[in-house]
Write a protein that binds this DNA or RNA. Structure first.
Lengths: 220, 220
DNA sequence: CGGTTTGCTGAACGATCATTCACCGATTCA
DNA sequence: TGAATCGGTGAATGATCGTTCAGCAAACCG
């Protein structure tokens, strides 16, 4: 049977359509995106899309499925352990890198999820909650070990998420240019130190060094 | 002239249309929302909307203008000073309350801003940036005063924003129920303490000021 | 009162959309 | 080689949209 080869080509084209759809959905939004535009983007005729997906809505669903699978794979690939600071730092760097690599997916999720209740529930269950739980569990573990003070993990985990998500949000929703110039490492350094030691100062340094801290107060 | 009274009625109806539009735009998104649905929501005929707004897009623009004005008013009404902890706490409580009072506006801004570049620029300039600058200036001031360590204000200000914005985001984008059960005060307490003192522990564990900060932990 | 103006209505119009389908060239099979 | 099959095409179809407009009822004016 030449089935395998044919199926391979078929799957290849299917992916090309999904990719084109992602592009157009991210640019225009699902409702304003047209099958014509997606077909043009993929370099095929409108009718061809219906040989691969039964409807526009199914195209949307398939796109979400593939996003979920890809995300989940990356989430589960991350180790649960390591020293606290290193773990958090690599987590933040990873996330920001991933967001920046897939700006279309970010924009797509942000603009469409609030409008489609079924999708929202699914994505939340499979990605959002999974990710949050892992972070919560990590923090709870470190609290139990006495390494972190007894903060509320469900709030602290969310807050930490917010500390790096906001940078992507500023780019996507507001089109902030200044944020784009910061490297993931720069952001992670400051954010993780802020999360662990706070803005007042690390518990390790005694509050006697007022003189040494008035240097680069105005950096911009 | 009875002009004033007539104009008053006209303005009243204009606002009613804007309110209905906000409702429908927030539920369906701008592209999928129909003038028919907005008219039905406002209890008037389709044609009537065109006596108040020249087009659907102008309805969108007018809605943004009113959102900007309202937001700006509230931002500028906030004092710039006060003790650091109190200022930040009231800031976080304020913001979360405001987001929760206007879930439609949040959803609307989140889903539509990324899709309309002109709007995005305007809103960013007039609200997003204004808000961020004020927070940055506040932090820079406290750093110069030696009250906060020399962190990078442009990163720290964003991170702090993220720490409270994420709670609204979780509700709006993912439909997270657990977050909705937290009171603004609960969130603010944990977030501000986290921001100022970090997760490892407060510098207040040093023999200075343990007593002055463990009071209003649970207010609701 | 008759006539004019005003604010509103909802059917009608042209445009555009998702979806379908009659048709085409290439490939496969006998 | 001729017939059958297959993947692909893009014009056609019916639905729905934003927008317009001819007409209606109430208010206003002389």
């Amino acid at each position: 049977m030449a089935r395998t080869r044919a199926d391979g080509l078929r799957e290849e084209r299917r992916q090309a359509i999904l990719k084109a759809a992602m592009k157009v959905f991210a640019r225009k939004g699902y409702a304003a995106a047209t099958i014509r535009a997606i077909a043009r983007e993929a370099g095929i005729a409108q009718g061809t899309i219906y040989l691969y997906f039964p409807s526009k809505r199914d195209l949307l669903l398939a796109l979400y499925r593939s996003m979920i699978l890809e995300s989940l794979e990356q989430i589960l690939a991350r180790p649960e352990t390591g020293d606290t600071e290193g773990f958090l730092r690599s987590l933040v760097v990873d996330r920001i890198r991933r967001f920046r690599r897939n700006p279309q997916a970010v924009r797509f999720a942000l603009t469409e999820l609030p409008l489609h209740a079924e999708l929202r529930g699914k994505v939340y269950q499979e990605i959002g909650l999974e990710q949050l739980q892992r972070l919560r569990a990590f923090l709870a573990d470190r609290i139990a070990a006495g390494e972190l003070r007894p903060l509320r993990p469900e709030i602290a985990a969310r807050a930490l998420q917010g500390m790096y998500v906001i940078f992507t949000l500023a780019e996507t929703v507001f089109g902030d240019r200044a944020v784009a110039r910061l490297t993931p490492e720069e952001i992670a350094d400051e954010v993780v130190r802020l999360f662990l030691d706070g803005a007042r100062g690390a518990p390790s340094t005694l509050p006697m060094s007022i003189s040494e801290r008035s240097d680069h107060a105005t950096s911009d």
